[in-house]
Amino acid sequence: MSRVLIVHHTASPATHELLEKTREGAGTDELDGVEVVTRAALQATASDVFAADAVILGTPANIGYMSGALKHFFDTIYYPCLEETRRLPYGLYVHGNDDATGAVRAVESIAGGLGWSPVAAPVVVIGAVTRTDLEACWELGATVAATISS
């Protein structure tokens, strides 16, 4: 069975909604052989990444950057995962109140340094979460899971 790891920092009702829809999409019954594992960014480890066939990252945009929790995740897994996780498929969702550009750029830079491969455009949500945003997160989860589905 293939595994999608969702690493998230869910500090608000908005990011919680995005997490739930992303998880729902990744776990859709339309895909066979995919297990979805969710880890808070402060608890996720290199072992979690090694056990994953794809990763979805979720973060709020805090002061123009990814959350400190997601940055901590990257700090702890970067060197252990640097060689062994190259070409790992990944997706990203970000919620910001007014701008998420810096957060997206930072995550893409670190994921690129790890050699991870984006499989979908980041889902960027600014302000209140809409139905369209939730659908985009569902699609993100399903797309990442589909890349590793048997």
Results as ranks from 00 to 15, higher is better:
residue 80 P to N: 15
residue 49 V to D: 05
residue 72 H to D: 15
residue 78 Y to A: 01
residue 68 G to R: 01
residue 140 L to C: 06
residue 10 T to G: 13
residue 84 E to K: 14
residue 53 D to W: 05
residue 87 R to N: 13
residue 101 T to G: 13
residue 8 H to P: 05
residue 78 Y to N: 05
residue 48 D to Q: 00
residue 14 A to L: 06
residue 116 W to G: 06
residue 6 I to C: 05
residue 148 I to F: 07
residue 117 S to R: 15
residue 104 V to S: 01
residue 143 T to I: 03
residue 11 A to G: 14
residue 105 R to H: 12
residue 41 A to N: 02
residue 140 L to T: 00
residue 13 P to I: 04
residue 94 V to Y: 14
residue 38 T to W: 02
residue 34 V to G: 01
residue 25 G to S: 10
residue 124 V to P: 02
residue 1 M to A: 14
residue 19 L to I: 01
residue 72 H to F: 15
residue 124 V to H: 05
residue 16 H to K: 13
residue 103 A to I: 05
residue 124 V to C: 02
residue 82 L to C: 06
residue 67 S to E: 01
residue 50 F to P: 07
residue 96 G to P: 11
residue 122 P to E: 03
residue 50 F to H: 11
residue 74 F to K: 10
residue 70 L to T: 04
residue 83 E to P: 00
residue 57 L to Y: 15
residue 35 E to R: 09
residue 65 Y to C: 08
residue 22 T to E: 02
residue 86 R to N: 08
residue 29 D to F: 08
residue 74 F to T: 03
residue 6 I to D: 00
residue 130 T to M: 08
residue 62 N to R: 12
residue 49 V to F: 04
residue 113 G to V: 07
residue 13 P to N: 09
residue 96 G to F: 07
residue 17 E to Y: 00
residue 108 E to F: 01
residue 52 A to V: 13
residue 144 V to L: 02
residue 43 Q to Y: 11
residue 17 E to C: 01
residue 133 D to M: 05
residue 43 Q to W: 10
residue 105 R to C: 00
residue 76 T to S: 12
residue 9 H to L: 04
residue 87 R to Y: 12
residue 38 T to L: 11
residue 137 C to A: 11
residue 97 N to Y: 13
residue 37 V to W: 05
residue 135 E to L: 08
residue 9 H to Q: 15
residue 118 P to Q: 13
residue 7 V to S: 11
residue 146 A to H: 09
residue 43 Q to T: 14
residue 146 A to I: 03
residue 14 A to C: 10
residue 94 V to E: 00
residue 114 L to C: 02
residue 42 L to R: 09
